[in-house]
Design a binder for these strands. Structure first.
Lengths: 331, 331
DNA sequence: CTCTATTGTTGGAGCGCTCTAAGGCTGTAG
DNA sequence: CTACAGCCTTAGAGCGCTCCAACAATAGAG
């Protein structure tokens, strides 16, 4: 498995190593004749440039470091998908890590990524303290996804959770609902803005809010609904799709029909929501776009096109499916 | 962002560059005193070794290349999760690519990964011709996941789809079903062994098989069931979970109840199947284990512990939930 | 036919590290 | 007091590449 080097190609093509380098980098200052000879020799030897040696010599990196807090979650997979698309488009490679939602493991993952001297770093919903992020940002460009920060040195990409929930509430209100409860995500990552958005939206319609403690799982949604059965609202805004699906199950088990008796809105527009069996009205977060924007932000910095930090706050959108309808019970 | 080098650390600690190198590699032949001095200097400078320079000089790589045909699919994300766990455990880093299910793009992705001279390559369900894989295997160790191959130079990790479907059929037969249909995955990746497994299992029970053309989507499952309504079997074995969920929707829309009127079994045990709202009886594929085994296979080769190819054929397992029950209609 | 551009090509230094072989120290035996 | 093990430590070459300065070679101008 000893692979050929530039030297080998040069020897075979009867030119110098430097000329091979020029050809490999696609320089225009090489005669067509020599170029062809070099390319032929490279082909015959099965030569391909050594990315690490190249990066070392040129003091530039075509690598983007990505730390995912938890790949298990399909949300992140889609973001990575977007990152990869943009990176590939510009000849960059992704080097990937997971932090396992533990600050210690994330710190280690961070160090490991930095040891590759990446052109930039994408942190997906990291849980490490801001100080660690700041320190990383001294070494390379950093963009934070699904986590906000006031650090002047890092870019951020988030969705506007307040607005997203407001979309859901407005939708329900326009259908005629007035008793709308929110199943809250607790300590979950974007739970706070969503809760805030709910309270603000309800207030703006002059309605009485009702926040019910819950969590980002279907079991959590079911549990929360069971606590609500004595005094059921006509509509529920869940903190995410899983929670919403759990809520629907519990409602149906209790003999209620969705959306006839209770309307339910989710959040995230996971593939789950799109299933005909579920057909959940929900709020879409442009996850792929998160990745694309994050990669783009990094590439801009790499090219020196921008210095000031950028804060992307993406607009979520309402996807109306079959779990919302006008209320039939007295509002 | 000009980061300190070994030279800087050596100067500050008052030792030679080589000594710093020894300390960084954790060599035992360094006096405690010097080691402490070096570590202190490194700490003060915020030094961390340059992974690429290290790899170039040592002619060894601590990088594993991963080509995912489509990260969008949660299946692959879980495999990557398993890969990452084992890689991290052994101080390896993952470098990741997607091939977008196109041979041309995959070939490019492959080349790009190889340019990093990775210690090994993991190909998740690649669509490139075997010849390309063989060529890659000449450059580094290769393990194929979710794609079989007779190449003597590559390791493979797959699940035993025939056996998985047999598990489903046996389960239904033991419940008393005799009219069991299979919704087929067509050209889909593991559809062939699953179909084969169905036919064999039915034959072994002396039952008449009934293969219905379908595909790996919930819409596909629904469509197939609609074609079945005139002569409904008592049980359905779907090619995967999505298909099964679609089938259930169509059955319910037609006024049938699952599992009372028809039992349904999925395949894959996606997170979808586990939802209480779905609670699908299905066949579990140990995806995380796929990743772990793939990484382990590579590491064994890297360490020279093994030369002959290994073929992992993982046993799928039956997960009984709420969509299967004894038939009530005449069998 | 010489002189200056212009274009194409080359050697050499160096990127940050590892690794080998050789060197400096200490302590103990002869 | 010299010799010889250790045990630490170091200089130096080299990994595969890029990049710069220098240099041929060809072309156009005077």
């Amino acid at each position: 498995m000893a692979r050929p080097t530039m030297e080998d190609v040069a020897a075979r093509a009867g030119v110098s190593r430097a000329l091979v380098s020029l050809v490999m980098r696609g320089s225009p200052k090489v005669s067509d004749q020599r170029r062809a000879a070099v390319l032929k020799a490279a082909e015959e030897l099965g030569y391909s440039p050594h990315a690490m040696a190249r990066s070392l010599a040129s003091r530039t990196s075509h690598v983007l470091g990505v730390m995912v807090s938890d790949l298990h979650n399909a949300f992140f997979a889609e973001v990575v998908d977007g990152l990869d698309a943009v990176a590939a488009e510009h000849g960059f490679e992704l080097i990937l890590n997971t932090g396992g939602r533990s600050p210690a493991r994330e710190r280690r993952a961070l160090r490991s990524l930095l040891s590759f001297r990446p052109a930039g770093l994408v942190l997906l919903s990291p849980v490490v303290p801001t100080a660690d992020i700041g320190r990383a940002a001294e070494q390379t460009s950093v963009v934070l996804v699904a986590r906000s920060s006031r650090l002047a040195t890092v870019d951020t990409v988030n969705d506007d959770g307040e607005r997203g929930i407001a979309l859901a509430v407005d939708h329900l209100v326009s259908l005629g609902h007035r008793r709308i409860a929110h199943l809250d995500g607790g300590e979950g990552s974007q739970a706070a803005p969503r809760r805030r958005g709910y309270l603000t939206a309800m207030a703006s319609h002059g309605l009485t809010p009702r926040v019910v403690a819950s969590e980002y799982t279907d079991a959590g949604g079911a549990r929360a609904v069971r606590g609500l059965l004595g005094d059921l609202p006509t509509a529920i805004v869940s903190c995410n799709d899983f929670n919403a699906v759990g809520a629907i199950s519990a409602l149906e088990e209790a003999g209620f029909r969705v959306p006839r008796d209770v309307s339910v809105v989710g959040y995230d527009n996971t593939s789950l929501a799109a299933l005909r069996h579920v057909s959940l009205t929900t709020i879409d977060q442009p996850r792929n776009e998160f990745g694309r924007l994050a990669a783009t932000a990094l590439l801009q910095r790499v090219r020196g096109e921008r210095v000031e930090p950028v804060r992307h706050l993406l607009h979520p959108s309402l996807i109306v499916r079959s779990t919302t309808a006008p209320p039939v019970r007295p509002a």
